[in-house]
């Protein structure tokens, strides 16, 4: 009898105490710092660097997404690619965990969609301006003057314009709004990438787009955040998965304003660099390129050894404000095995 009573009491007290203990454990949160030390806090953690966090825009999805348009063929046999691009300027988006900023966007995202065509294709863009200000689309490349998106402002609240030109030259080019004040329209996010593939395709590769950009969230003409593809530190806590011995091709475009230069440094490797992507022979074999405003190019490399490799601006201010990421290189067993088989 006594034993029963005792065990009931013990059981009840355990039930009573356990939730208290687990609550106390919940209250104590920990996080790891630069130097690896573990910090305990009863409060909240604000860490855009190492803590996995996601926001509305998904750089993971943007990275390998290419828009080829609605394809048709003209009577003369020319490929026609139709796109619909809608400009807006009233969205408030989380551009870093907890930071909300009024972005101006093409098709709702910053950067806008990556438009991709083959040299000689007819690109036809049905542009609709649903914003409250005038906007245009100005493509870098070769096209008639009236398709330049500078003098033909498209009115707010549903104004329309059709940009029509032959894709060229081969390479990677930016497009952006060209309405004055230009800086304002660009830094709010009205830009994107336009890729023109050569008629004879480049070798197959794991292809990705990186737009190097920044945000001046307090309007003091200095960027508060930098990133590859908008969200600071994103590829640091969401490493880009790639394989050993697989060709990686990055279309990189620098859209950072205010700061005269940006750069791109790759760890544990060097890359072949094709400035503007206009030539099919690389100009450099390097691990560091310097990019001025809208300067861009194609990088190609393969990793020999698996593991984690950083890539970031070697202007360290930019990397410490978000322009830093990581490749997680997985061992490409399949390919290795094949090679071994072929070898024997």
């Amino acid at each position: 009898m006594m034993i029963l009573v005792l065990s009931v009491i013990v059981g009840l007290s355990v039930i009573a105490i356990l939730p208290v203990m687990s609550e106390a454990q919940l209250k104590q949160k920990t996080f790891v710092t630069h130097s690896g030390s573990v910090i305990q806090t009863t409060g909240e953690i604000i860490d855009p660097l190492y803590t996995v966090s996601s926001v509305e825009f998904d750089p993971e999805e943007f990275l390998r997404n290419f828009e080829y348009g609605r394809i048709s063929v003209s009577e003369s046999g020319q490929t026609i690619r139709d796109y619909t691009i809608i400009a807006e300027d009233d969205k408030i988006q989380e551009i870093s965990p907890g930071v909300f900023f009024n972005i101006w966007s093409f098709n709702g995202t910053v950067p806008g969609p990556t438009i991709r065509a083959t040299e000689g294709d007819l690109v036809r863009i049905n542009f609709i301006n649903n914003g409250s200000k005038e906007h245009t689309m100005h493509f870098h490349g070769i096209h008639p003057a009236e398709m330049d998106g500078v003098f033909e402002s498209v009115g707010s609240g549903g104004g329309q314009f059709v940009y029509e030109f032959e894709a060229g030259p081969v390479g990677v080019h930016p497009y952006h709004c060209h309405v004055m004040p230009l800086e304002e329209h660009i830094v709010h996010g009205l830009y994107g990438v336009f890729i023109v593939d050569p008629k004879e395709e480049r070798p197959p590769a794991d292809e990705m787009v990186m737009v190097l950009n920044g945000f001046d969230t307090d309007f003091d003409t200095e960027n508060n955040f930098y990133a590859a593809n908008t969200i600071p530190f994103y590829y640091q806590h969401h490493p880009i998965q790639i394989n050993t011995d697989e060709l990686i091709r990055i279309y990189v475009v620098n859209m950072v304003e205010f700061d005269p230069i940006n750069n791109f440094h790759l760890h544990g490797n060097l890359y072949k660099y094709y400035p503007t992507g206009t030539d099919l022979i690389p100009s450099f074999y390097t691990d560091m390129i310097t990019l001025s405003q809208t300067e861009r190019g194609i990088m190609e490399f393969e990793y020999k050894f698996p593991g984690k490799y950083l890539f970031h601006a070697h202007k360290v201010e930019f990397s410490e404000k978000g322009w830093v990421g990581m490749f997680l290189v997985n061992d490409n067993h399949e390919k290795n095995n094949q090679e071994i088989e072929n070898g024997t």
Partner: peptide, 17 residues
């Protein structure tokens, strides 16, 4: 939402919230 030292973003904790 964010703390920095010398204009470089740092992880931090806010207490109580």
């Amino acid at each position: 939402v964010m703390a920095d030292v010398n204009d470089r973003i740092q992880p931090a904790a806010v207490e109580p919230d």
